[in-house]
Design a protein around this nucleic acid. Structure first.
Lengths: 141, 141
DNA sequence: CTTCCTGCAAAGGATTTGCAACGGC
DNA sequence: GCCGTTGCAAATCCTTTGCAGGAAG
């Protein structure tokens, strides 16, 4: 946990930015929460532990993390952007339209097929998102 | 073309809505354009042929079409929602991050694998979106 | 002491809503 | 005539920006 933050702070400095106390706190909360948080969600968590930190700072910190590659934004179609930590292996999402929960999966075969499709179309892949919307196990009961 | 509009108008009436001249015009333009239009795009097209139609009506008409299943919204990550006609077979998208062009593809194997993933997770699929971002053939030159 | 960061308020863009007039059935 | 639709303006939601003060290097 601390190593991650230190690595990020090091990269921040290397890219001409600064590592402030405030920013460190936001990053710390973000990584300790872990889920698929909206800015709103993260702000709420941050506020609880550090009441003096403002909304805009959370936004800007997430943006910086995304630039450095430590956060990934995803659009689940509910109007607000979600962010997740980008330290783990690539994965895709099962999104429950009833409760909003987000589950992750990784299917190597699908990845392979995507590359195939790209090659067939002379398309150079930079990124991809696969979102499966539906009803999760819990909500089917 | 006309059959489609008539089918939609019939469904509109059946679902307690109405089929007005204005709405018909918007629907007509939407289907004649065909691409992956933003509300802005469609509004511009509509305005050109029927200057009296308002922005909000385009929004609302697209929403109605989506409800009835004749339009699908997709988020390509550029801030505004795109809409496409939903009469064709399901397909996924290659989105060029340089020129913004959107290409379509369909890979049955991927569909099968998605169903497999869902089954493994006891997840009932309602829908899915697979967006591959990258650089298209044209823009690689 | 220069540059970046912070927090507030204010601006911005996309989308939705309230409301009075209008149009379909 | 009743109820959905239209168009305008205003409101709303999420996100970004301007700016003055504060902190980092």
């Amino acid at each position: 946990m601390d190593e991650i933050i230190e690595r990020i702070e090091k990269e921040l400095r290397e890219s001409g930015k600064k590592s402030s106390r405030t920013r460190r706190k936001v990053i710390e909360v973000f990584f300790s929460c872990g889920g698929h948080l909206s800015v709103e969600d993260l702000y709420r968590e941050v506020k609880q532990r550090y009441p003096d930190i403002g909304y805009v700072t959370v936004y800007r910190t997430l943006k910086v993390l995304e630039e450095l590659g430590y956060a990934t934004s995803l659009d689940v179609g509910d109007g607000s952007t979600r962010f997740e930590t980008a330290l783990r292996q690539h994965h895709d999402h099962l999104i429950c339209t009833v409760c909003g929960r987000i589950y992750e999966f990784f299917e190597p075969e699908i990845e392979v097929l995507q590359n195939l499709v790209a090659r067939k179309n002379d398309f150079r892949i930079l990124d991809h998102t696969l979102h499966i919307f539906g009803i999760c196990k819990e909500c089917q009961k």
